[in-house]
Design a binder for these strands. Structure first.
Lengths: 266, 266
DNA sequence: CTCTGTGAAGATCTTCACAGCT
DNA sequence: AGCTGTGAAGATCTTCACAGAG
């Protein structure tokens, strides 16, 4: 998980397992697709296949939400879409601010998925004055000097950081001070936040490194000479479904030459 | 997992837990930073703090790699950087191809983290002919018709998909057929791949939804019991912060495949 | 009979706490 | 002393397999 300053303490209240929460969006997407095709019901088997998980896991996940299925039949698509949306809090409007409008920030701003899922880009913020006023994805970029005001005026509680690594912590501190309590961090840095603030991190460098690890394992190795225990013939490979991540991984590292802002500064 | 068996993740001395592998890049980044400051050694406590994990976990993780520390002292930074790099397979060159050069693809291509170690963008590929030949991040975009040739000529085994959701599976199939065995998918779709191929997914929409879930939790139970949901009639809209919006969401219609392209179509 | 919901078993991952090297 | 390395306990997550609703 990518929760920054973890929160283990809290009372084990009526909670849905974190692993399950991480999969709900996946189910929701599959269900939405079915809904658009006017499919009325699905079995756990079918839905699981569409979401890329196994059916037992899916049924177990749903069991934490309640008994929304019908034995011998399956699940009502519309009803389930609604229940999951509600559970995820998507039945309400979430204004978000995005800080750092470089290549990545622009790509994120253009990401259609926001609007359709209860998220609304309330503001785009950057430190580069030459960008201010310029519209990106139809939204004019505002200067970072106004960050606090923007957050407060819009009642923003979720912020997205797509600045270079060096600016991330500072931006994070300001967002938190202004009232943001959930942050999605694209900068390759570990953010430290006070308790109560959630941080999820997305870093492509880490993802690539993990792939490289497995790739290395697949390709026969040369000098290494470890192998020994590997089964001949078919090497054990991770099941594709397992690659599904709770998302959030993190990191990236500095390079000899350039640092690696998650994206270009401006 | 689509069809078959779940593989027994072969338990061998060389088998590093997946959770550990996912953290190695984090440690590597922290170590690289220390290395650049010419710090000779670090204790598990210090390094753990820099990486954002607890020290017991870090020591346990390192124990899978071997005994690279010195009791009473700590770990030699340079040595550890090397060992982790080697373990992750970063001591070799990994040519990668990126398919789908829209906003996101361009952002990724410009991502400095690639070049700085192990990864090399061998080619940028897009289906849009008007983009072909145009340099992005200094690399000329090539047409997707040449995908197979490009992959083969460059010995590419890792591909990055940043196309719209609708094109992802097809691109994936072609990459795999051409020899790619590891894929980093940014398109909001579940890719199905043959056994032996690894897929990792990065999905912004999912990350935001997970944050929304936790955010909703924090918002407190100001209202009263949520529970018991009725069918999607009037969605309850509750604003998290001060101001508020009124967009109900749930199952709004939107793009073609019900989902959002990770970025502008290529 | 079909397919959900779930107790229980199994597999992983995390944390503790301390033996043992330096 | 200080700090690593690790068995063992604990917490989570996954999978099995079947009772039982429809």
């Amino acid at each position: 998980m990518a929760t920054g300053r973890t929160h283990r303490p809290a009372t084990r209240s009526r909670g849905i397992p974190e692993a399950t929460v991480a999969r709900l969006p996946l189910y929701l997407r599959a269900l939405t697709a079915l809904s658009e095709r006017s499919v009325p019901t699905v079995s756990s088997e079918e839905l699981a296949a569409a979401a890329g998980v196994n059916s037992a896991k899916l049924r177990k996940d749903f069991s934490y939400l309640g008994s929304y299925g019908t034995r011998g039949v399956g699940y009502d698509v519309e009803y389930l879409v609604y229940q999951i949306s509600r559970e995820l809090g998507l039945t309400q409007d979430w204004p978000i601010v995005m800080v750092g409008i470089g290549n990545l920030g622009a790509a994120l701003a253009n990401y259609g998925g926001f609007a359709s899922r209860g998220f609304r880009v309330a503001a785009l913020i950057d430190a580069d004055k030459s960008l201010v006023g310029k519209p990106v994805a139809g939204i004019p970029v505002q200067h970072i000097d106004d960050l606090e005001k923007i957050v407060e005026d819009n009642g923003v509680s979720i912020g997205v950081i797509a600045t270079p690594a060096g600016a991330a912590q500072q931006v994070c501190d300001r967002l938190v001070a202004a009232g943001v309590t959930s942050i999605l961090n694209f900068a390759p840095t570990v953010l430290s936040v006070p308790e109560g603030v959630d941080v999820r991190k997305v870093d492509l460098s880490i993802e690539l490194q993990i792939l490289a690890f497995h790739e290395q394992r697949k390709a026969g190795e040369e000098g290494g000479g470890d192998v020994e225990g590997v089964l001949p013939a078919a090497a054990a490979v991770r099941s594709p479904g397992a690659a599904e991540g709770a998302g959030a991984t993190s990191s990236g590292r500095k390079g000899p030459d350039g640092d690696l802002p998650a994206v270009m500064p401006a």
